[in-house]
């Protein structure tokens, strides 16, 4: 692929609101974009450090709840001892706090769960997400539990002296989400190409070797978890202010699975993987909806996941890259089945 590809893709997506008249499709693109952001953050852990964190939705949800509560205000009694009253603040601060609190949780959970690996790690991360779900469900005084938290104000952006605007319209929200995706893309790209990123990839390849050459594995993993959790929290905050209502089901395991499917299908450990996977699975429901019910749609997702693991274990993006490079090198050669498994 050429260096220009990302720019061309960006220009294309920037033009979408100009010609897309279907507001519902635009709405779907916005929510898909938010999930892509979350999937990109998961990719940092799953793809670059090789840690299968299945509790990722916890950070997304924590970001959403933190941001929503910052913007809505709350009045909570802690342990029956003292009251914490918070007046509503501007939603932009919510976005900031949502990101920071999620990052902090990433630090704490990273510290705890990176003490174990493999199956233990996976189950610990799932448990953590379940605990956050049950806390949000039962701490009714703070989160309103199953009553949901409606009426979350949309984001207001602007600078002092230049004026402000509140993001009520879909088009405005679309550009904000697009901007965040671009930011995240650049951030991840720089991170991965830094010394830090090379160390991460090294320990993915061989953890004990990485340790023996003096890489402090846990420290690197925790830093990756902080960045990843912060990004997921930011995505969650954007989600809360766009959808304007959240409830504890935001923490459900299926949301993590959706992110995992996006990353795995697109190509874990590639910059473009979550974008491609996210677009496919974000827009598929819109297309499928007219033909099949939601159950069949999910059955197809599940089957696709199995097929990807069997046929394209590296995901779509690496497969296309290989095909592209090969056809460029040997233009006369028949394009074979995407050179599967060569990098496995």
């Amino acid at each position: 692929m050429t260096r220009l590809t990302p720019i061309i893709v960006l220009l294309f997506f920037a033009s979408v609101p100009w010609w897309l008249t279907d507001q519902y499709l635009l709405h779907t693109l916005i929510t898909t974009g938010i999930f892509i952001l979350a999937a990109m953050s998961l990719n940092l852990l799953l793809g670059y450090t090789g840690q299968l964190s299945l509790g990722h939705v916890a950070f997304f949800g924590i970001g959403a709840y933190t941001s929503a509560l910052t913007a809505l205000g709350f009045d909570v009694e802690l342990f029956g001892l003292f009251r914490v009253v918070h007046e509503p603040w501007p939603p932009v601060l919510g976005l900031l706090f949502g990101t920071l609190v999620a990052a902090l949780c990433g630090f704490v959970i990273g510290k705890l769960s990176f003490r174990v690996r493999g199956a233990y790690f996976v189950i610990v991360t799932i448990s953590f997400a379940e605990v956050t779900r049950l806390v949000s469900l039962n701490w009714v005084e703070l989160t309103q539990g199953p009553l949901a938290l409606p009426g979350i104000p949309p984001l207001t952006i602007g600078f002092p002296g230049l004026g402000y605007m509140t993001l009520w319209e879909k088009t405005e929200n679309y550009y904000v989400v697009l901007a965040f995706i671009v930011l995240a893309y650049i951030l991840i790209k720089r991170l991965v190409n830094s010394r830090f990123g090379r160390a991460m990839i090294a320990l993915k390849g061989n953890e004990s070797l990485a340790t023996s050459v003096g890489i402090d594995v846990t420290r690197y993993l925790v830093i990756a978890a902080i960045v990843s959790a912060g990004m997921a929290g930011c995505a969650g905050a954007l989600y809360a202010h766009y959808i304007q209502i959240i409830d504890p089901m935001i923490f459900m395991f299926l949301n993590t699975v959706t992110m995992v499917i996006m990353v795995i299908t697109g190509g874990k450990g590639t910059l473009a993987g979550p974008l491609v996977g996210g677009l496919i699975f974000g827009l598929a429901p819109v297309v499928l909806r007219s033909y099949v019910g939601p159950e069949i749609q999910w059955i197809l997702y599940g089957l696709l996941m199995i097929v990807v693991v069997f046929v394209l274990p590296q995901g779509i993006v690496p497969a296309i890259e290989q095909w592209f490079n090969r056809t460029k090198a040997e233009p006369l050669r028949e394009p074979s089945v995407a050179g599967k498994g060569e990098r496995a």
């Binding site: 299968l52 199956a119 996976v122 699975v257 995992v260 795995i264 159950e295 069949i296 999910w298 059955i299 997702y301 599940g302 089957l303 696709l304 996941m305 199995i306 693991v309």
Partner: peptide, 14 residues
């Protein structure tokens, strides 16, 4: 694990 997650989704929706 990913295979099992795929199978889980398929079974539940079936």
């Amino acid at each position: 694990m990913l295979l099992m997650i795929g199978a889980w989704i398929v079974l539940q929706n079936t």
